[in-house]
Simulated assay, not measured.
Amino acid sequence: MYKLLIADDEDEIRNGLSHYFPWNEVGFEVFGQAANGRDALQFMAQHPVDVLLCDIRMPIMTGIEVARELSQQKSPTTIIFLSGFKEFDYAQQALIYGVKNYILKPTKYSELLNVFTTVKEQLDERQATSMRFPPSPPAAGAGLDEDSALLSDKIIARIKRYVAEHYKDASLEGASQLVHMNPHYISKYFKEKTGENFSDFLLKVKMNKAAELLQEMNYKFYEISELVGYSNAKNFTRAFRKFYGKSPREYRNTE
């Protein structure tokens, strides 16, 4: 989940945005609220956030002043302005400080959804890029491609280790949280780097473990089913037969 700070001097609007929009479904967590720009900056100094949804006109410190300060700090926080004012000069100032998203009051559900869906995609891509190409310089004699390949190997190795250790409950969502990438992106990334779908790899690990357990006579079939993540023994038997060409019982009797 990306962390979101909502700054607006109107309590009703601030609380309404915080509690009545399904942020979690879009990939965000409301990490805090602020009643003015100064409070927003003070909060962010102690609790960094990924996105600031900020009213453009607030007492003490305006949204424009907040954007200017964050720009000077070279902050990576994405800023989205929220305002009932349509004056062109405000939008123009926002562009100077890198603010590209501007939502008008009263806010519409569809507009919030569209803007934050796009921002989430941008954050996912930024995160993936930073993992592929870390800011630290490569070692002497090593090129960027070599450095990127090394990092890629580490990511894949970490995902495979996660599956090997947590095969019972492992999932694409769990893997994506582990390496801080979007599940859809991880699915394509894993396929691209290994030539194998994540779901096929997970199934292979489950079935290999099941075959290993079947060679130990003290485990009953339903117990093995549960140990590799199948609550329904029939589903386990069906998956095992499809993978090995024989049922768990036949496998135990022939191996």
Rank of each mutant, 00 (worst) to 15 (best):
T118Q: 07
H47T: 08
E87S: 13
L172A: 03
T62N: 13
P48R: 11
I80L: 14
N208W: 00
K188T: 06
M207R: 01
R241A: 00
S247N: 04
D89G: 05
P134K: 11
K242Q: 02
Y222K: 12
K108M: 11
T194D: 10
S187V: 01
V163S: 13
A40S: 08
S136I: 07
A170C: 14
F198P: 10
I96M: 14
Q177V: 03
A149W: 01
D89V: 11
V228R: 01
Y244M: 01
R238N: 02
N218S: 05
A157C: 13
L41C: 09
M131S: 11
E226A: 10
N15I: 08
A40K: 02
Q73P: 07
M181F: 03
K168C: 12
I60F: 07
A91L: 13
I80S: 01
R126M: 10
V179G: 15
S176Y: 01
D39I: 01
N36A: 12
M181A: 04
G84V: 01
T117P: 11
F28S: 07
I96P: 05
E255N: 04
N253D: 06
I159H: 12
M44Y: 05
R126I: 03
V26P: 14
Y189C: 04
Q46P: 15
D169I: 09
L151W: 07
F236A: 01
T107G: 13
L151E: 09
G63E: 02
L202F: 00
V179T: 07
Y167T: 04
L41D: 12
G27M: 12
V66S: 07
H166M: 04
L52K: 02
Q122S: 13
R68L: 11
S171G: 06
K209G: 02
Q73T: 05
K120M: 09
I159V: 15
R161V: 03
E226I: 08
D9P: 04
V49S: 12
K193G: 12
L113M: 09
Q177I: 01
M217Q: 03
D89C: 06
A35N: 13
P135L: 09
G63M: 04
A170N: 03
A128N: 15
P134L: 14
V228A: 06
M217S: 11
R68P: 06
A170E: 10
L53W: 00
A157F: 06
A233N: 00
G141M: 05
N101L: 10
I13K: 08
D89M: 05
P59F: 00
E121R: 15
E29Y: 05
S199Y: 07
A142E: 13
Y97R: 10
L144W: 14
H166F: 15
M44S: 10
S110T: 04
I159T: 10
F221P: 00
K108V: 14
E125W: 15
L123S: 00
I186V: 14
F31Q: 07
N114R: 15
R38I: 10
D55Q: 12
G37H: 09
L227M: 12
R132M: 05
I60L: 11
K191I: 03
I13G: 05
I80N: 03
G16H: 02
A149L: 05
